[in-house]
Every structure is written in C-alpha cells, then in structure tokens.
C-alpha cells in the first residue's frame, strides 16, 4: 500500500494555521513540501478550508439560543403528549371496532332477511367450491334474542365511551 501520511504533516498544518505558510515557513519545510505529494495536498486544501471556515462563522446569523431552547421544549412537550395519548388512541380504536362488531353481530342474529340472504349466498358459493357456510349456533341466536336489549345497550355504551374519551383527549390536547 502506498504511503497515506507524512510525518511532517502536523508541522505543515501548524504553519498553515499560524499563518506562517508559505512566506514565513522554514525553508526546510518548504523544500519538503515541494517534494512530498501528501504535504502538497495538505497545503492545497487546508488554507482554503481554514479561510472558508472563518468566513462562514463570521457570516452566519444564528437564531437566539433562547428560541432554540423554547422550540426544543415545545417539541419535547408535544412528543410527550403524543406518546401519552398513543395508548388512548389504541383503546379508542379497539372500543370502536368492538362496538361495530357487537352491533353487526346483533344485526346478523336478529335480521331474518339477512340470514336468508346469507344462506342463499352461502348455498351458491358452496355449490361452486364445495364449502358450507357455517350457520350461527342456536345458543347464540337464543342469547341474542333473549338478551338483545342488553347487548344493544352495551354496544351503545361502547360507542359513547369511545366518543367521550375522544372528546376528553381533544380538550386536553388543546390545553397543552
């Protein structure tokens, strides 16, 4: 592998950074740089970066540290609020899905026209792919017809709880 660094590199850099390069640098160092490809690259690159760095530092108009601090605080608070609300959002989604599921089950178990239509579609489908649509077990039909009112009330409670939770969280988010 060819040489990738030169022992005089640090001396050359020091000369550049102390503004001694090239005029006030030691003649030996200048002679070395003239014959060393690595140090020649260093003197081609380092002064340009140093000058550019100083220009950039002087040119930039930075925002106030307080403003950055405020924004960091706000962002951190918003993130914390989002993290806190995440389980509630999941609970809302589960509640909503459960409410829809219960309502659908009640509808399916009580609407005779729906059951007839389902049987008809199931018959047509099983004729094509030799598969039988499972019928709703009689126990479940009995349960729904006997306690249907309670199940409807439960579904309504689910939906109301979900909506209440959503409204409470929304108000809390507005306050923060």
């Amino acid at each position: 592998m060819s040489q990738v660094e030169c022992p005089f590199e640090a001396d050359v850099l020091t000369a550049v950074y102390t503004s001694r390069w090239p005029d006030r640098a030691e003649p030996e160092l200048r002679a070395h740089v003239a014959n060393c490809a690595i140090c020649a690259d260093v003197v081609a690159v380092a002064p340009v970066f140093e000058e550019d760095f100083e220009e950039a530092r002087a040119r930039v108009k930075l925002p106030d540290a307080g403003l950055i601090w405020w924004r960091a605080q706000l962002q951190a608070r918003a993130e914390a609020a989002r993290a806190a609300v995440r389980p509630i959002t999941v609970a809302q989604a589960v509640g909503f899905a459960a409410a829809v599921g219960v309502a659908g089950a009640i509808f399916g178990a009580t609407a005779t026209w729906f059951q007839e239509a389902l049987q008809w579609f199931g018959g047509a489908f099983s004729a094509m792919v030799s598969w039988r649509v499972p019928t709703i077990p009689p126990d479940i039909v009995d349960l729904v017809t006997t306690h249907g009112l309670w199940l409807v009330a439960g579904a309504v409670c689910f939906v109301l709880a979900t909506v209440a939770l959503y409204l409470a969280v929304r108000d809390q988010e507005r306050e923060t």
């Binding site: 550019d52 760095f53 950039a56 530092r57 930039v60 930075l62 540290a65 307080g66 950055i68």
Partner: peptide
C-alpha cells in the same frame, strides 16, 4: 448551560 454551549458551538455546526 445550553445557552453557553450553543454560543460556543453553533457557528461551527452551522458552517
């Protein structure tokens, strides 16, 4: 502490 640190470093980071 942040203000002091920012004042020391922000120009370099921006560049």
């Amino acid at each position: 502490t942040f203000r002091a640190f920012y004042d020391r470093t922000a120009r370099s980071v921006w560049a």
